[in-house]
Design a protein around this nucleic acid. Structure first.
Lengths: 216, 216
DNA sequence: TAGATTGTTAATCGATTAACAATC
DNA sequence: TAGATTGTTAATCGATTAACAATC
């Protein structure tokens, strides 16, 4: 059951995949949990647990895991093979940068269109993606059966826009605004909050500088 | 000591702050842990614990916390009052979007310059920030005593660039590349990995869709 | 005063780590 | 065969939650 695999495990999976591609490029055919752990600053225990939970493929004692099979297994596990369509709402600076980000395809994500209220961008194409008026959002999402939305509107519009998204049938919102949005339990939200990230980094920095002081 | 406050607590602090500003705007003078918890989908227990650990300011039984004092206390706790200078390395699409992001000032972060190897952008200003050649990075960081770097280079340059940053005295790297970078313990790293985030969101979405199926 | 809410301690929960039998 | 490495179970660790005495 995917239900009892921790979200942390999912978080690490793309990192394993990236490392495996590097190993493959170097011509390696097998890899052990110790080697994967070293490359990513993890413990062999957590690597073994993650891989076994993902039911990716059995490793062989003494040999380790086959790199190719692991790549195939994790890609499948993460759903990188079947394309998931998404809409992007709010075509400001960040929205435009994300529209132009070519890496999403590798992760099975395809942004089919951007939506905005600004007549200046409506009707244009940005990085090849059509920009449509927000008014057409609900219809388009419903008609195409799209389940994922990327939210890049100004913070004070975030909740209102989230409400529209939920109404139109979106079931997963990747929230790049600083606003905390309220949605029903039937909708997943992932917050990409720069302020929170920076706060954590600053705390780590402060801790490091403090230790330095003390050791002097 | 800030050492035993969990990073999760730091992560939540900017969210409290944002909510408090909203409450202030509504004219509220006091707020209870229950109200803050409701606004952010947390428990009152964790709110009380966070606020007491941050030594922000004592609440009053029956009344709660004073909104203004809480705003001041958390801002101070997060270091939003004293400006921290940072450099940004890799002025591609994402780098440019971050250079243009006006919100950092609110968090006490000031990006003083961008660095790149592309002659096309070197010497120009992007969103008012000068773009300098990577060769000048080490000197500038050292001379200005800058401690924070934002890393937005292509993944295959990430480790090499991180090495340069460490050498020049940077002590905190905000890593927006998909690469896992190896740095000494004396340097903090915060990974902003889109692939990992998307994997988690996808897992949550799959879980939701599965539950839906089952309940039919 | 009565009762809402704080700050803190103890109980619970979940994830990571360590240990080890199985085995190629 | 001997030993490296797997997969899994038990122990540990850390964070969240629940409970409750203190108190405005």
């Amino acid at each position: 059951m995917s239900g009892d695999i921790s979200l942390q495990t999912f978080h690490r999976m793309p990192q394993y995949l990236k490392t495996l591609y590097e190993f493959k490029k170097e011509g390696r055919e097998n890899v052990s949990s110790v080697q994967l752990a070293e490359a990513l600053d993890l413990t062999p225990s957590i690597v073994k647990k993650d891989l076994s939970q993902a039911k990716v493929q059995d490793g062989k004692p003494k040999v380790g895991y086959a790199v190719d099979d692991l790549i195939a297994g994790i890609s499948e596990f993460l759903g990188y093979n079947d394309l998931k369509e998404a809409v992007l709402v709010g075509v400001g600076k960040l929205g435009q940068a994300l529209l132009g980000y070519t890496g999403f395809g590798d992760y099975g994500l395809d942004i089919v269109a951007g939506f905005d209220i600004d007549d200046g961008v409506i009707g244009t194409k940005i990085h090849g993606k059509p920009i449509l008026p927000t008014g057409k959002l609900e219809g388009a999402v419903e008609k195409l059966g799209i389940k994922i939305a990327i939210l890049t509107v100004p913070a004070d519009h975030a909740q209102a826009m989230a409400d529209v998204l939920v109404r139109s049938g979106i079931r997963a919102i990747w929230n790049f605004t600083t606003a905390h949005i309220q949605v029903p339990d039937s909708v997943a939200v992932r917050n990409e909050n720069m302020a929170s990230s920076l706060a954590v980094l600053s705390a780590q920095l402060a801790e490091i500088m403090k230790k330095e002081q003390e050791s002097k």
